[in-house]
Design a protein around this nucleic acid. Sequence first.
RNA 1: GCCGACAUAGCUCAGGGGUAGAGCAACUGAUUCGUAAUCAGUAGGUCCUCGGUUCAAUUCCGAGUGUCGGCACCA
Length: 644
Amino acid sequence: MPAITLPDGSVRQFDGATTGTAVAAAIGPGLARAAVAMSLNGKLVDLSTVIDEDAALRFITRKDDIVLEMIRHDTAHVLAEAVQALWPGTQVTIGPSIKDGFYYDFFRNQPFTPEDFEAIEAKMREIIAANAPFEREEWDRDAAIAFFEEKGERFKAELIRDLPESETISIYRQGAWLDLCRGPHMRGTGDIGTAFKLMKVAGAYWRGDHRNPMLTRIYGTAWRDQKELDAYLHQLEEAEKRDHRRIGREMDLFHIQEEAVGQIFWHAKGWRLYTVLQDYMRRLQTRHGYQEVRTPQLVDRALWEASGHWDKYREHMFIATVEDEEKTLALKPMNCPCHVQIFRHGLRSYRELPLRMAEFGACHRYEPSGALHGIMRVRGFTQDDAHIFCTEEQIASETASFVAMLDEVYRDLGFENFRVKFSDRPEARAGDDETWDKSEKALKEACALAGVSFETNPGEGAFYGPKLEFVLTDAIGRDWQCGTLQVDFILPERLDASYIGEDSARHRPVMLHRAILGSFERFIGILIEQFAGRFPLWLAPTQVVVASIVTDAEPYAQDVAEKLRRAGLQVEVDGRNEKINAKIREHSLARVPVILVVGRREAEEGKVAMRRLGGSAQEILGLEDAVRLLGDEARAPDMRRLQG
RNA sequence: GCCGACAUAGCUCAGGGGUAGAGCAACUGAUUCGUAAUCAGUAGGUCCUCGGUUCAAUUCCGAGUGUCGGCACCA
């Protein structure tokens, strides 16, 4: 006699075991039509699930956002059926819903191409139109394995074999086709609707392991209706316009070419942005008690052997040799071993700790070709790196002040939201478990002190210690690690760093590896996408264009520009023989934040007509006022804070 | 690195077995025009590289390089 409690608090009694379908029908035909699944005691299940005891029930209709996940998951099943119908012998593997869509991984000797999409989508529409119900069955484990092996589905068989013994083996049928699946699903394929689209094909390793065979993955997107789908596709187009590679070209910031793959040719404007950012970071870190150093690019392999990097990362290092010498040198892939050299050069006292050593360290890593991505993932980059040599007791407070500094920087640069991941010990690591226990504990306590909440990223730590990763998202929705803080008990040991304690004995310092931007290259990439190239005045490579209306006004335009330059602004004069409309248009498209228009009138009266990017209003200002206003506004945020 | 796609003027792209075209940009001239494109003209290309097929390859085939999208990697 199940009593079913609905979200409005009402309770319905049923004589015997019932199903969601029956309950919905009992409530009303409208709901019966609309309900596609249900939440039973908080768990999302099929509508056909049998209810034989008291339960809290909420029906899921297309209005619920959770239905998007179901649509996507169901669409993945339909995709798999379509593909197997068109290319028998293709093996199925897994097909989950993901952000904005779904994918399905297939094994087939010949990969799919986007040209196949049309045929696949047509077949999918057929399957959806047939509206076969999704039917759940629970199978015996061995029978399921035998069944899939019989069919030649060795990946499916392997999946079942690897499921824990306690797991129920459930199968979902849709018409004549079936798949191993945990569920839940909507009522039938017809519930999917027609707002789906196959997006791209890609290779993906079976179970995400590069030693395994490569599968063909088909990505798709699916939505409740065409309107949502169109909106999503439009959003993708908009994101593409923010792509830092595109804006970098449009704004003449940088380029990359074949002769220096993975390295950046910074053009004048891009470099201006870079140096403004670097100056800002330098001021900030000085204020936060860091000392800046500079260490060599080429360092003998002996040091990398001692640090452990040679062993682990040799293939990813650029090696340099000279004919006259036996030595093998490596372009530094990171700065820490060099910083330890400075630390251990001479005797250190506990009184010097925490010692915060910073370097804008230019590093080179031979990144896999497939990893390269614009200026975000490169082979030559510069970290805003620093190492804090401290005692164990100082870890927490140093972490807290680091997080405060990072927070300040991210806010100043327009990032209010960022995610923090805590990555703990990886499989391949240096140091014993005791040390790792100590490091992870220290870092977690430090997070608590700093009020940092994080998600855990198991097994993703550095080989020498656990790390915090500060993650920002690019225009296309991809995550990038920028800031980081890593606790390291290992390197000081390996490279024999020590200080003299209060007790006059030698002690090992702890090293905190930390970066805020991560690399200038990556961060500037993110910054470009964040602002879509429309930088705040202090970061803009060209801050002001003075545009003359008539040739007569050009001398005055030059005069205006000169005064602005003296106030520290980056100014260009557009004295070309073009109509003012054309100039406004061009400089607006070039994302110049401020255009000062000057004609005869302004020249006579000593004024400027100021127009801001994105607005159409103009403001008439006296020249001196404009210079003061813009000069003030162009100050970096830290300078404003200092100067008020 | 792996799978796939792509590579033509500075940019965006069209074309196609008989050595290439558009728009924008550039340059020249005219125009001096007050807030998102003035008009006219000119110039610009080893069609990524190497090899093969062919009377003939930028086009077809192969290899390489690079880029893009994923996957794997990311000290």
